[in-house]
Design a protein around this nucleic acid. Structure first.
Length: 139
DNA sequence: GCCAACGTTGGC
DNA sequence: GCCAACGTTGGC
């Protein structure tokens, strides 16, 4: 089971929106970047990911679960783009900020820090454990 | 609001 | 197939 990180601007689609959908979840639509799309295509149902608020907050706020593998993005006619569906699994007890990640030993290699523009990215199992610890949730 | 980093497009 | 121009993302 792989680990991921999803970025979204909270003004557009934040944790509160995601949580409001409950177990029904929502498409992670709108991705128009090949690397990000390919990461979604690699996801399996049951994979989990961090939910990151970009721009506003700049912090990881919770964990989502993949509940449907990548399928056509309903917001475009272009068959090139597809996306997974995710549901909110649990919020962090304490959000983990980008600044915290930057200075935290063990997170130097995080894609979040080294490729700030990639909106859907892989997270290693070590990074996952460290960040869950900081966030106050079970890995 | 600025701008650096990165991805994409299109002329050659 | 190179690369300049342009657009977008996202940290600051």
């Amino acid at each position: 089971m792989a680990r991921w990180l999803f970025k979204s601007e909270p003004d557009t689609w934040g944790w509160s929106h995601q949580a409001a959908r409950g177990d029904a979840g929502e498409e992670w639509h709108g991705v128009r970047n090949y690397q990000a799309r390919n990461n979604m295509r690699a996801m399996k149902v049951g994979d989990t990911g961090f939910f990151y608020h970009s721009n506003v907050g700049k912090e990881i706020v919770g964990i989502v679960e993949v509940i449907r593998e990548s399928a056509p993005d309903s917001t475009t006619e272009d068959p090139w783009w597809d996306c997974v569906m995710v549901r909110a699994l649990r919020p962090f007890a304490r959000p983990v900020s980008l600044d915290t990640c930057k200075v935290q030993p063990g997170l130097e290699g995080m894609v979040l820090i080294n490729n700030s523009r990639l909106s859907v990215q892989p997270v290693t199992e070590d990074e996952w454990r460290i960040i869950c610890g900081l966030g106050g949730v079970d890995p």
